[in-house]
């Protein structure tokens, strides 16, 4: 965390020395809210970390507020209160793409900019969407990890969050497309759901291993699911026989990466993503970003906006070699 801040400070110092200080930093003070799926999860907390750091530099009054359960209704209540409190920008990772849409459209009608990140909402209900990483790249990273460690004829079990989780379904769609195209012998034997609950994910993981003894890899594209699957492998002593991959923050999976249950697990830098969310919020509030555009953020890089969608980064694959560099 500290090192990131230092790097950023250094970067911005260099920028100002070179006389190319980002123009948007001088705008009037704005209020920006960040609404996670629920409070109390480390991944979203990591976004907040980055956002707070960026908000200071961008003259943003920042608020992190979310529901106590992962419910879209809770998010809508919060969006409505943010409208009444006249926030300038609402940023949100949505529990589902449809339910919060009318409330966000109401916000947009009142001149509030809406920036979605992580899990998108319906395109009409936001000004910009920051996609973590492109869906095909994420799918490829997970399947490649399976192929590398469990072989091209691996029997794969999928442990997702819920049947209608938008981002998980997008990734799993990419997984299946890439799998059939490149590794036709690889098969998906079952799909189970852990509802993003640690206990349900663990039981689902254990049940998969017990009921499908020939499974050699588990793809679990959800924070709780990947941890549950890895914990199940460890409990049943299948380390080295079943490999787990998925999408989870490094703190949660660190021990399993070191145990060799998870060899490679793609995600992205959540802290830096939080910084980007604030930078895009600033640009959106200042009307300095078009639906198709490019922009540069000091310390993060240059981004392309295509049809209001900004892809944050390539997948960042955590392995035993690099995981200790990341803490969130």
């Amino acid at each position: 965390m500290k090192s990131i801040t230092k790097t950023l400070l250094l970067a911005s110092a260099l920028c100002s020395l070179a006389g190319i200080a980002p123009a948007h930093a001088q705008g009037k003070r704005i209020k920006v809210a960040m609404v996670p799926k629920l409070i109390g999860l480390s991944v979203f907390k990591a976004n907040e970390k980055g956002a707070i750091a960026a908000a200071k530099k961008l003259n943003i009054q920042f608020l992190y507020t979310g529901p106590v359960t992962a419910s879209a209704q809770g998010q809508v209540d919060i969006i409505n209160s943010l409208i009444a409190r006249r926030f300038n920008v609402i940023t949100i990772t949505s529990n589902n793409p449809t339910q919060p849409a009318p409330a966000l459209e109401r916000a947009m009608k009142q001149g509030i900019k809406v920036v979605s990140y992580d899990s998108d909402v319906a395109p009409d209900a936001r000004d910009f969407f920051i996609q973590n990483t492109s869906y095909p790249a994420m799918g490829k990273a997970m399947v490649d990890s399976v192929e590398k460690y469990a072989g091209p004829d691996a029997k794969v079990a999928i442990l997702s969050s819920t049947p209608d989780a938008a981002i998980q379904n997008a990734w799993l769609g990419a997984v299946k497309t890439y799998m059939t195209a490149n590794f036709p012998k690889m098969t998906v034997v079952t799909t189970q759901y852990g509802e993003s609950s640690p206990s349900k994910s663990l039981s689902a993981g254990l049940n998969i291993l017990q009921a499908y003894p020939d499974v050699t890899a588990i793809i679990a594209p959800d924070g709780a699911a990947e941890v549950g699957a890895a914990a199940a492998v460890k409990k049943l002593g299948r380390t080295g026989k079943v490999f787990v991959t998925g999408a989870s923050d490094p703190d949660s999976i660190r021990q399993y990466v070191k145990d060799g249950i998870i060899k490679a697990s793609p995600l992205w830098d959540e802290v830096k993503e939080g910084e980007l969310v604030m930078n895009v919020s600033r640009l959106a509030a200042d009307d300095k970003l078009k639906a198709n555009d490019t922009f540069t953020v000091a310390g993060l890089g240059t981004y392309t906006v295509k049809d209001k969608v900004i892809v944050f980064s390539k997948p960042l694959v955590f392995t035993a070699a690099n995981i200790d560099q990341y803490h969130f």
């Binding site: 419910s71 879209a72 449809t98 339910q99 849409a101």
Partner: peptide, 13 residues
């Protein structure tokens, strides 16, 4: 009608 959408878990809360 309010959400202009349905979800199988929308009534849980």
């Amino acid at each position: 009608s309010y959400y202009d959408a349905v979800r199988p878990d929308m009534g849980n809360i």
